[in-house]
Amino acid sequence: MRKRNIILLLVVTAAGAVYLNNTSLLSDRAAGKPVVLAHRGLAQEYDRTGLTKDTCTAERMLPPRHDYLENTVRSMDAAFRRGADVLELDVHPTTDGKFAVFHDWTVDCRTEGNGETRSHSMADLKKLDVGYGYTADGGKTYPFRGQGVGLMPSLDEVMERFPDRRFHINVKSNDAKEGEALAAFLSALPRERQAALTIVGGDRPLQAVKAALPDMRTLSKKSLTRCLLRYAGLGWSGYVPEDCRGTTLGVPINFAPWLWGWPDRFLDRMESAGTNVYLFGPYHGGGFSDGIDDPAIIETLPAGYSGGISTDALELVMPALERRSN
Protein backbone atom coordinates (compact mmCIF):
# COMPACT_ATOMS: atom_id res chain seq x y z
CA MET A 1 0.00 0.00 0.00
CA ARG A 2 2.79 2.41 0.90
CA LYS A 3 4.57 1.69 -2.39
CA ARG A 4 1.34 2.34 -4.28
CA ASN A 5 0.88 5.67 -2.49
CA ILE A 6 4.44 6.71 -3.31
CA ILE A 7 3.89 5.89 -6.98
CA LEU A 8 0.62 7.82 -6.97
CA LEU A 9 2.33 10.80 -5.32
CA LEU A 10 5.09 10.75 -7.92
CA VAL A 11 2.57 10.61 -10.76
CA VAL A 12 0.56 13.51 -9.31
CA THR A 13 3.73 15.52 -8.72
CA ALA A 14 4.94 14.89 -12.26
CA ALA A 15 1.55 15.82 -13.72
CA GLY A 16 1.52 19.00 -11.65
CA ALA A 17 5.00 19.93 -12.83
CA VAL A 18 3.99 19.39 -16.48
CA TYR A 19 0.87 21.50 -15.94
CA LEU A 20 2.81 24.36 -14.35
CA ASN A 21 5.40 24.23 -17.10
CA ASN A 22 2.73 24.57 -19.79
CA THR A 23 -0.12 26.63 -18.39
CA SER A 24 -0.53 30.08 -19.90
CA LEU A 25 -1.96 31.26 -16.58
CA LEU A 26 1.59 31.72 -15.32
CA SER A 27 2.89 33.35 -18.51
CA ASP A 28 3.85 37.03 -18.43
CA ARG A 29 3.29 37.41 -22.18
CA ALA A 30 1.54 40.71 -22.88
CA ALA A 31 -1.80 40.65 -24.65
CA GLY A 32 -1.63 41.84 -28.24
CA LYS A 33 -3.23 41.69 -31.67
CA PRO A 34 -2.82 38.94 -34.28
CA VAL A 35 -0.22 39.30 -37.01
CA VAL A 36 -2.23 39.04 -40.23
CA LEU A 37 -0.94 37.10 -43.25
CA ALA A 38 -2.95 37.84 -46.41
CA HIS A 39 -2.84 34.95 -48.87
CA ARG A 40 -2.10 36.36 -52.37
CA GLY A 41 -3.07 39.86 -51.24
CA LEU A 42 -6.68 40.79 -51.94
CA ALA A 43 -8.09 38.04 -54.15
CA GLN A 44 -11.36 36.97 -55.69
CA GLU A 45 -13.21 34.24 -53.78
CA TYR A 46 -14.27 31.07 -55.58
CA ASP A 47 -16.40 27.98 -55.02
CA ARG A 48 -14.16 25.39 -53.35
CA THR A 49 -16.50 22.42 -53.82
CA GLY A 50 -14.66 19.42 -55.28
CA LEU A 51 -11.44 21.31 -55.91
CA THR A 52 -8.47 19.47 -57.40
CA LYS A 53 -4.99 20.76 -58.19
CA ASP A 54 -6.10 21.19 -61.83
CA THR A 55 -9.31 23.13 -61.13
CA CYS A 56 -9.50 26.52 -62.86
CA THR A 57 -10.65 28.65 -59.93
CA ALA A 58 -11.16 31.76 -62.09
CA GLU A 59 -14.03 29.94 -63.83
CA ARG A 60 -15.82 29.40 -60.52
CA MET A 61 -15.39 32.88 -59.07
CA LEU A 62 -18.07 33.96 -56.61
CA PRO A 63 -19.85 37.28 -57.22
CA PRO A 64 -17.03 39.80 -56.64
CA ARG A 65 -16.98 42.07 -53.60
CA HIS A 66 -14.07 44.11 -55.01
CA ASP A 67 -12.07 44.46 -58.23
CA TYR A 68 -8.63 43.34 -57.03
CA LEU A 69 -6.79 40.46 -58.70
CA GLU A 70 -4.52 38.18 -56.71
CA ASN A 71 -0.73 38.38 -56.86
CA THR A 72 -0.73 41.86 -58.42
CA VAL A 73 1.06 44.89 -56.98
CA ARG A 74 -2.27 46.74 -56.83
CA SER A 75 -3.76 43.89 -54.78
CA MET A 76 -0.75 43.77 -52.46
CA ASP A 77 -0.81 47.51 -51.88
CA ALA A 78 -4.52 47.36 -51.03
CA ALA A 79 -3.96 44.45 -48.63
CA PHE A 80 -1.26 46.33 -46.72
CA ARG A 81 -3.44 49.44 -46.58
CA ARG A 82 -6.28 47.34 -45.13
CA GLY A 83 -4.12 46.08 -42.31
CA ALA A 84 -2.20 43.03 -43.52
CA ASP A 85 1.19 42.62 -41.84
CA VAL A 86 2.53 39.90 -44.16
CA LEU A 87 1.64 38.77 -47.69
CA GLU A 88 1.94 35.38 -49.35
CA LEU A 89 2.79 35.32 -53.06
CA ASP A 90 3.53 32.57 -55.59
CA VAL A 91 6.52 32.44 -57.94
CA HIS A 92 7.63 30.59 -61.07
CA PRO A 93 11.00 30.92 -62.86
CA THR A 94 10.87 32.40 -66.36
CA THR A 95 12.98 31.76 -69.44
CA ASP A 96 14.76 35.11 -69.07
CA GLY A 97 16.01 34.49 -65.53
CA LYS A 98 13.26 36.23 -63.60
CA PHE A 99 10.63 34.97 -61.18
CA ALA A 100 7.03 35.65 -62.20
CA VAL A 101 4.56 36.29 -59.37
CA PHE A 102 1.61 34.12 -60.42
CA HIS A 103 -0.21 31.21 -58.80
CA ASP A 104 -1.06 28.77 -61.58
CA TRP A 105 1.23 26.20 -63.16
CA THR A 106 -0.12 27.25 -66.57
CA VAL A 107 -1.42 30.59 -67.83
CA ASP A 108 -4.46 29.01 -69.53
CA CYS A 109 -6.95 29.57 -66.70
CA ARG A 110 -6.59 33.24 -65.80
CA THR A 111 -5.15 34.69 -68.99
CA GLU A 112 -5.67 34.51 -72.78
CA GLY A 113 -2.31 32.76 -73.10
CA ASN A 114 -1.42 29.08 -72.98
CA GLY A 115 1.32 26.79 -71.74
CA GLU A 116 3.28 26.42 -68.54
CA THR A 117 4.03 29.69 -66.79
CA ARG A 118 7.72 28.81 -66.61
CA SER A 119 7.92 28.26 -70.38
CA HIS A 120 7.47 32.00 -70.98
CA SER A 121 9.76 34.98 -70.59
CA MET A 122 8.82 37.67 -68.11
CA ALA A 123 8.55 40.06 -71.03
CA ASP A 124 5.92 37.85 -72.69
CA LEU A 125 4.03 37.31 -69.43
CA LYS A 126 3.77 41.08 -69.08
CA LYS A 127 1.70 41.15 -72.28
CA LEU A 128 -1.00 38.88 -70.84
CA ASP A 129 -4.27 39.90 -69.21
CA VAL A 130 -4.36 38.30 -65.73
CA GLY A 131 -8.06 39.21 -65.42
CA TYR A 132 -9.08 37.55 -68.68
CA GLY A 133 -10.52 34.27 -67.39
CA TYR A 134 -12.57 35.34 -64.36
CA THR A 135 -16.30 34.63 -64.56
CA ALA A 136 -18.99 34.29 -61.90
CA ASP A 137 -21.82 33.20 -64.22
CA GLY A 138 -20.44 30.27 -66.18
CA GLY A 139 -18.89 32.33 -68.94
CA LYS A 140 -21.73 34.74 -69.70
CA THR A 141 -19.70 37.71 -68.53
CA TYR A 142 -16.04 38.35 -67.72
CA PRO A 143 -15.99 41.43 -65.45
CA PHE A 144 -12.20 41.82 -65.26
CA ARG A 145 -11.34 41.07 -68.88
CA GLY A 146 -9.08 43.80 -70.23
CA GLN A 147 -8.29 45.15 -66.77
CA GLY A 148 -5.28 42.93 -66.00
CA VAL A 149 -2.98 43.56 -68.97
CA GLY A 150 0.59 43.96 -67.78
CA LEU A 151 -0.28 43.38 -64.13
CA MET A 152 1.68 40.15 -63.60
CA PRO A 153 4.70 41.37 -61.61
CA SER A 154 8.17 39.91 -61.27
CA LEU A 155 9.55 39.10 -57.84
CA ASP A 156 12.20 41.81 -58.11
CA GLU A 157 9.44 44.35 -58.87
CA VAL A 158 7.61 43.36 -55.70
CA MET A 159 10.75 43.54 -53.57
CA GLU A 160 11.52 46.99 -54.98
CA ARG A 161 7.96 48.24 -54.54
CA PHE A 162 7.69 46.99 -50.93
CA PRO A 163 11.25 47.14 -49.53
CA ASP A 164 10.23 47.06 -45.87
CA ARG A 165 7.32 44.59 -45.96
CA ARG A 166 7.20 40.95 -44.90
CA PHE A 167 6.42 38.21 -47.42
CA HIS A 168 5.96 34.48 -47.72
CA ILE A 169 7.32 33.39 -51.10
CA ASN A 170 5.67 30.17 -52.30
CA VAL A 171 7.76 28.07 -54.71
CA LYS A 172 5.29 26.20 -56.91
CA SER A 173 7.50 23.24 -57.80
CA ASN A 174 9.55 20.61 -56.00
CA ASP A 175 12.63 21.24 -58.13
CA ALA A 176 15.94 21.73 -56.30
CA LYS A 177 17.32 23.81 -59.19
CA GLU A 178 14.49 26.27 -58.72
CA GLY A 179 15.50 26.55 -55.07
CA GLU A 180 19.08 27.24 -56.12
CA ALA A 181 17.94 29.99 -58.50
CA LEU A 182 15.74 31.55 -55.83
CA ALA A 183 18.60 31.38 -53.33
CA ALA A 184 20.81 33.26 -55.79
CA PHE A 185 18.15 35.98 -56.04
CA LEU A 186 17.74 36.15 -52.27
CA SER A 187 21.48 36.24 -51.67
CA ALA A 188 21.65 39.60 -53.42
CA LEU A 189 19.20 41.12 -50.92
CA PRO A 190 20.39 42.77 -47.70
CA ARG A 191 20.35 40.50 -44.66
CA GLU A 192 17.62 42.54 -42.98
CA ARG A 193 15.47 42.05 -46.10
CA GLN A 194 16.09 38.31 -46.05
CA ALA A 195 15.01 38.23 -42.40
CA ALA A 196 11.56 39.54 -43.40
CA LEU A 197 10.95 36.62 -45.79
CA THR A 198 9.79 33.02 -45.43
CA ILE A 199 10.16 30.57 -48.32
CA VAL A 200 7.31 28.06 -48.67
CA GLY A 201 7.11 25.00 -50.91
CA GLY A 202 8.45 21.51 -51.52
CA ASP A 203 11.30 20.00 -49.55
CA ARG A 204 13.79 19.94 -52.45
CA PRO A 205 13.82 23.65 -53.34
CA LEU A 206 13.65 24.59 -49.67
CA GLN A 207 16.65 22.40 -48.87
CA ALA A 208 18.54 24.16 -51.67
CA VAL A 209 17.61 27.54 -50.20
CA LYS A 210 18.69 26.42 -46.73
CA ALA A 211 22.00 25.09 -48.05
CA ALA A 212 22.80 28.50 -49.52
CA LEU A 213 21.14 30.61 -46.82
CA PRO A 214 21.05 28.68 -43.52
CA ASP A 215 19.29 31.49 -41.64
CA MET A 216 16.39 31.77 -44.09
CA ARG A 217 13.00 30.79 -42.64
CA THR A 218 11.29 28.03 -44.61
CA LEU A 219 8.05 26.05 -44.41
CA SER A 220 7.08 22.82 -46.13
CA LYS A 221 4.49 20.16 -45.32
CA LYS A 222 7.24 17.72 -44.34
CA SER A 223 9.13 20.19 -42.15
CA LEU A 224 5.91 21.24 -40.44
CA THR A 225 4.95 17.61 -39.77
CA ARG A 226 8.40 16.81 -38.37
CA CYS A 227 8.29 19.81 -36.06
CA LEU A 228 4.80 19.18 -34.70
CA LEU A 229 5.33 15.45 -34.16
CA ARG A 230 8.59 15.98 -32.28
CA TYR A 231 7.14 18.83 -30.27
CA ALA A 232 4.18 16.61 -29.36
CA GLY A 233 6.63 14.13 -27.85
CA LEU A 234 9.01 16.57 -26.17
CA GLY A 235 7.23 19.90 -25.78
CA TRP A 236 5.77 19.06 -22.36
CA SER A 237 9.23 19.74 -20.95
CA GLY A 238 9.52 23.14 -22.63
CA TYR A 239 12.10 21.81 -25.09
CA VAL A 240 11.84 23.11 -28.68
CA PRO A 241 13.10 20.47 -31.17
CA GLU A 242 15.62 21.51 -33.80
CA ASP A 243 12.99 21.07 -36.54
CA CYS A 244 10.97 23.86 -34.91
CA ARG A 245 13.81 26.38 -34.66
CA GLY A 246 14.41 29.31 -36.99
CA THR A 247 11.41 28.53 -39.17
CA THR A 248 7.76 29.38 -39.74
CA LEU A 249 4.86 27.19 -38.64
CA GLY A 250 1.34 27.04 -40.07
CA VAL A 251 -0.96 25.45 -37.48
CA PRO A 252 -4.61 24.51 -38.11
CA ILE A 253 -6.77 26.28 -35.52
CA ASN A 254 -8.46 23.01 -34.47
CA PHE A 255 -5.04 21.44 -33.81
CA ALA A 256 -3.52 24.34 -31.87
CA PRO A 257 -5.19 23.69 -28.46
CA TRP A 258 -3.40 20.32 -28.29
CA LEU A 259 0.04 21.90 -28.49
CA TRP A 260 2.03 21.93 -25.26
CA GLY A 261 1.81 25.37 -23.68
CA TRP A 262 -0.86 26.72 -26.02
CA PRO A 263 -1.24 29.59 -26.45
CA ASP A 264 1.19 31.84 -24.59
CA ARG A 265 3.86 29.39 -23.45
CA PHE A 266 3.93 27.87 -26.95
CA LEU A 267 4.22 31.28 -28.63
CA ASP A 268 6.97 32.32 -26.21
CA ARG A 269 8.95 29.16 -26.89
CA MET A 270 8.69 29.52 -30.65
CA GLU A 271 9.51 33.22 -30.53
CA SER A 272 12.62 32.54 -28.45
CA ALA A 273 13.61 29.90 -31.04
CA GLY A 274 13.29 32.41 -33.88
CA THR A 275 10.09 30.85 -35.26
CA ASN A 276 6.93 32.58 -36.47
CA VAL A 277 3.53 30.96 -35.87
CA TYR A 278 0.41 31.41 -38.03
CA LEU A 279 -2.99 29.88 -37.44
CA PHE A 280 -4.82 28.48 -40.46
CA GLY A 281 -8.43 27.38 -40.76
CA PRO A 282 -9.62 23.99 -39.46
CA TYR A 283 -7.77 20.97 -40.85
CA HIS A 284 -9.96 18.24 -42.36
CA GLY A 285 -7.35 16.02 -43.99
CA GLY A 286 -5.26 16.39 -47.15
CA GLY A 287 -2.70 19.18 -47.56
CA PHE A 288 -2.44 22.54 -45.84
CA SER A 289 -5.74 23.80 -44.49
CA ASP A 290 -7.32 26.96 -45.89
CA GLY A 291 -6.92 30.31 -44.23
CA ILE A 292 -9.16 31.71 -41.51
CA ASP A 293 -11.82 33.21 -43.76
CA ASP A 294 -14.91 33.08 -41.54
CA PRO A 295 -15.14 36.15 -39.26
CA ALA A 296 -16.88 33.97 -36.67
CA ILE A 297 -13.64 32.03 -36.17
CA ILE A 298 -11.92 35.25 -35.09
CA GLU A 299 -14.11 35.22 -31.98
CA THR A 300 -12.68 31.82 -31.01
CA LEU A 301 -9.08 33.05 -30.85
CA PRO A 302 -7.55 33.08 -27.36
CA ALA A 303 -7.97 36.38 -25.52
CA GLY A 304 -5.06 38.70 -26.32
CA TYR A 305 -3.71 36.32 -28.98
CA SER A 306 -0.62 37.90 -30.55
CA GLY A 307 0.54 35.13 -32.85
CA GLY A 308 -0.21 35.09 -36.56
CA ILE A 309 -3.28 34.17 -38.59
CA SER A 310 -3.51 33.44 -42.31
CA THR A 311 -6.54 34.48 -44.35
CA ASP A 312 -7.80 34.38 -47.93
CA ALA A 313 -10.56 36.88 -47.10
CA LEU A 314 -8.81 39.91 -45.64
CA GLU A 315 -11.73 42.26 -46.34
CA LEU A 316 -14.01 40.07 -44.17
CA VAL A 317 -11.57 39.24 -41.39
CA MET A 318 -10.10 42.70 -40.70
CA PRO A 319 -13.42 44.22 -39.53
CA ALA A 320 -13.84 41.27 -37.13
CA LEU A 321 -10.34 41.84 -35.77
CA GLU A 322 -11.03 45.55 -35.34
CA ARG A 323 -14.26 44.86 -33.44
CA ARG A 324 -12.40 42.40 -31.24
CA SER A 325 -9.75 44.99 -30.31
CA ASN A 326 -12.30 47.69 -29.39
Rank of each mutant, 00 (worst) to 15 (best):
N5P: 08
N5D: 12
I7T: 11
L8D: 01
A14M: 12
A17N: 09
V18N: 01
N22A: 10
L26E: 07
D28V: 15
A31P: 12
V35F: 09
V35H: 02
V36H: 04
L37V: 15
H39P: 01
Q44A: 00
T52L: 02
T52Y: 04
T55C: 03
C56Y: 05
A58I: 02
E59G: 09
L62F: 08
P63T: 15
R65D: 12
L69K: 01
V73G: 01
V73Y: 03
M76G: 08
D77Y: 10
D77V: 11
D77H: 11
A78N: 06
F80W: 15
R81Y: 02
L87E: 08
E88T: 10
H92Q: 12
P93G: 02
T94V: 05
G97K: 01
V101Q: 00
F102L: 06
H103D: 00
D104E: 09
W105V: 04
T106I: 04
D108T: 08
N114A: 10
N114W: 13
G115I: 15
R118W: 06
S121E: 05
M122E: 05
A123L: 07
L128Y: 04
V130L: 08
G138V: 09
T141M: 07
Q147I: 10
V149Y: 04
G150N: 05
S154P: 04
S154K: 02
L155V: 04
E157R: 06
E160Y: 13
P163I: 05
R166H: 07
H168A: 14
A176L: 14
L182V: 13
A188W: 07
A188M: 13
A196C: 11
I199W: 06
G201T: 10
R204V: 10
L206V: 15
V209M: 02
K210G: 04
A211D: 10
S220G: 14
S220N: 04
L224P: 05
T225D: 12
R226I: 09
S237R: 13
V240Q: 03
P241V: 07
T247N: 12
T247Q: 12
T248F: 10
P263W: 09
R269C: 15
E271K: 06
E271L: 14
N276I: 05
F280C: 13
P282I: 14
Y283H: 08
G285A: 07
G291R: 01
E299K: 14
G304K: 01
Y305N: 14
S310G: 11
T311L: 03
A313V: 11
E315M: 04
E315W: 08
E315K: 01
V317N: 01
L321M: 11
E322Y: 14
S325E: 11
